[in-house]
């Protein structure tokens, strides 16, 4: 089970890196979204996979009856999902605004902050 998921995670990373190597901001953002998901799966798999036993304690007991799935990675993944989701939403708005203002989504052409022919500093008075 773990091996299969590990191969899947590797595929996700490959796709994410490939997309992030693109010049276009939209593809980079898609790459980041996939990267976030692959990281989540990685954490989840690192907590070891247990099938079909949710970590819920019946109301009349204080400890679970059998060994259950590890709840900690689920909490970690939930936190990471929340964070990566809100960052993705924010970056999407930012990229859209940048596209409107700068007229391009190609990162090589975004040279407002770093002009291409920046003059050298003065060499004398």
């Amino acid at each position: 089970m773990e091996t299969g998921v590990a191969i899947l995670i590797g595929l996700f990373f490959t796709v994410a890196v490939y997309l992030m190597l693109s010049k276009h901001l939209v593809r980079i953002l898609l790459g980041i979204a996939i990267l976030g998901n692959s990281v989540n799966m990685l954490i989840f798999t690192n907590g070891r996979l247990t099938r079909e036993i949710p970590p819920l304690i019946p109301s009349h007991l204080y400890t679970p009856e059998t060994a259950t799935a590890n709840p900690l990675p689920q909490a970690l993944v939930l936190t990471a999902i929340v964070i990566s989701f809100s960052f993705f939403a924010f970056l999407l708005v930012l990229a859209f605004r940048a596209y409107q203002e700068l007229g391009t989504d190609e990162v090589n052409k975004m040279r407002v902050a770093e002009p291409e022919n920046d003059p050298t500093p003065p060499q004398g008075y």
Binding site: M20, L25, I28, L29, I32, L35, G36, V39, L42, I43, T45, N46, G47, P73, L76, A80, S84, F87, F90, L91, L94, A95, R97, A98, E101, L102, V107, M110, R111, V112, A113
Partner: peptide, 28 residues
């Protein structure tokens, strides 16, 4: 600012994702 923020935002997000990968492995 939008130009600077795009570069800052994307690269820092990739950085924290790397941090998270390492943390996941450490937990494993």
């Amino acid at each position: 600012q939008l130009d600077g923020a795009v570069k800052y935002g994307v690269l820092n997000l990739v950085g924290t994702n790397l941090f998270l990968i390492a943390t996941g492995l450490l937990y494993g």
